[in-house]
Nucleic acid binder design. Structure first.
Length: 225
DNA sequence: AATCATTGCAACCGCTACGCT
DNA sequence: GAGCGTAGCGGTTGCAATGAT
């Protein structure tokens, strides 16, 4: 995996490289990634440096299994935001977008696909009888306006503001509390994956399959649901 | 014990968004 | 408004670890 074609080192990071990058960021702060390779003396591209810091070296990164409430929140946020991994990760303290993406792709996507297949089979008979009277509306990720506060990190957790607590006065205060209310019983049981309660996922995924907004509903309708 | 298949995760690549001139 | 450079994101790949045969 390693390579130095074009003079830039690739592949897995060594302990020495990690130390150099950590020292550099601690000295100069995050940002100005194009200067980091020069400042640190690393023979890496700026992208590689940034990614290594964000996904691995950053001090507040939480490693290990996702707890049940983290998975719960992830599923709901994914339903709401689609594959906006950075936004989802921003609401899971200590988790990186790469972590969230990997977890979704390895653990949840397969289950979602599986459930969709099962649901499709179960729905075949029903659809044959209801096709004439029901319009089929496919679940699609919401395309949200960039100006929407949720996409601008205004609901981010911080030391002064509680997790998910709204900073703006847009009327979506404490949006995430209601996001979790529906399955509160699952939150109280916060065993860790893997080896945890997988029935919880099944419930969540069934919930997902049935809870996409229908045509004509607004986003606020969906949130209130 | 050896081989093959699967899984999980770190890292890379290509693209878009954004800010500056 | 156009052009350029940088930052950031999501999709994809590569590979080590693990499990199955």
């Amino acid at each position: 995996m390693e390579g130095t074609s074009s003079g830039v080192r690739k592949g897995a990071w060594s302990q020495t490289e990690d130390d150099l990058l950590r020292d550099c960021v601690q000295l100069h702060g995050e940002g100005k990634w194009h200067l980091v390779p020069h400042r640190s003396g690393l023979n890496r591209c700026r992208k590689s440096c940034r990614l290594r810091w964000l996904n691995y070296l950053k001090p507040d990164i939480k490693r290990g299994n996702f707890s049940e409430d983290e998975v719960d929140l992830m599923i709901r946020l994914h339903k709401l935001l689609g594959n906006r991994w950075s936004l989802i990760a921003g609401r899971l303290p200590g988790r990186t977008s790469n972590d969230v993406k990997n977890f979704w792709n390895t653990n949840l996507r397969r289950k979602v696909l599986c459930h969709n297949k099962v649901n499709n089979k179960e729905n075949v008979k029903e659809s044959e009888t209801t096709r004439k009277t029901h319009q089929v509306i496919k679940p699609v990720p919401r395309a949200l306006p960039k100006a929407w506060p949720l996409l601008q990190g205004k609901f981010m957790s911080s030391s002064k503001v509680g997790v998910g607590e709204a900073v703006s006065s847009s009327g979506h205060e404490n949006w995430w509390e209601t996001l979790l209310d529906e399955k509160e019983e699952n939150i109280n049981n916060s065993t860790c994956f893997p080896g945890g309660n997988f029935e919880f996922w099944d419930e969540e995924l069934n919930f997902m399959a049935s809870d996409f907004p229908t045509e004509g509903e607004t986003l606020s309708d969906f949130l209130l649901n």
